[in-house]
Amino acid sequence: MNIYQPQLALVTAVTEETPDTRTLRLELKDEALRNAFAFHAGQFGEYSVFGAGESTFCIASPPTRKGFIECSFKAVGKVTSALREVNVGDTVGFRGPYGNWFPVDDWKGKDVVFIAGGIGLAPVRCVIWNVLDRRDEFGDVTIVYGARSVVDLVYKRELQEWASRSDVRIVTTVDPGGQTDDWKGEVGYVTPVVEATAPQAQNAVAVLCGPPIVVKLTLPVLERLGFADDAIFTTLENRMKCGLGKCGRCNIGPVYVCKDGPVFTAAQLKELPAEY
């Protein structure tokens, strides 16, 4: 079997997150492969609808939960629109896991601050659950999550679950104008909300994912809060095709994002040409 041939995966659950975003739970059909499948938080895959093509999403479920993977995606184009039509019982294609990962094991004993904007919560969710599934290995856990509006918040049930835990501090926010009458969270863009939340930086790491503009604006805020460049982790979402370091699509400067990434520290980001 060549490296571009996908595995078949069964859709076993579908969650409509927002009007344009949904989460699929997938189980590899081949039992041996399903049982052997292992990955790290932050890795991604190529998901396909036969006839529409392949699309790149992070694996949004944590590696601590076995037997299935989940992906959450926003319908923005050809493949994502086709994936929006699939139902429980349908078969899709999957290749992966690919890329590097968050060095979660190195964070033992540290505080972890999660910051996500929009669908950027998908890769962060994987790490959040990974950390919460091993809760006593880490210090304080803070989550700051922002979306355009209340309907655009993804993983609503999990946001509530995290909010109800005493060992998690969570701040959710929506852009000005995106709030509803009964909205109890913050109103404002993610960046100023992070600044106001002011997580302490001593012996802490920050995980930051979101649209390029959110990442760009929030990095200096984290710096002001005292986070060192190598304590800030983010993911790049350059367009990809192969995910295997062959097709050239994701190359920027010295890195192939699909192999050398998608996880980078702010220190590594500063060394790259601004082509992300």
Binding site: S48, A52, G53, K241, C242, K246, C247, G248, R249
Partner: peptide
């Protein structure tokens, strides 16, 4: 050697 990947029905 850059390539695209497409599905053709």
């Amino acid at each position: 050697h850059c390539f695209d990947i497409v599905d053709e029905e």
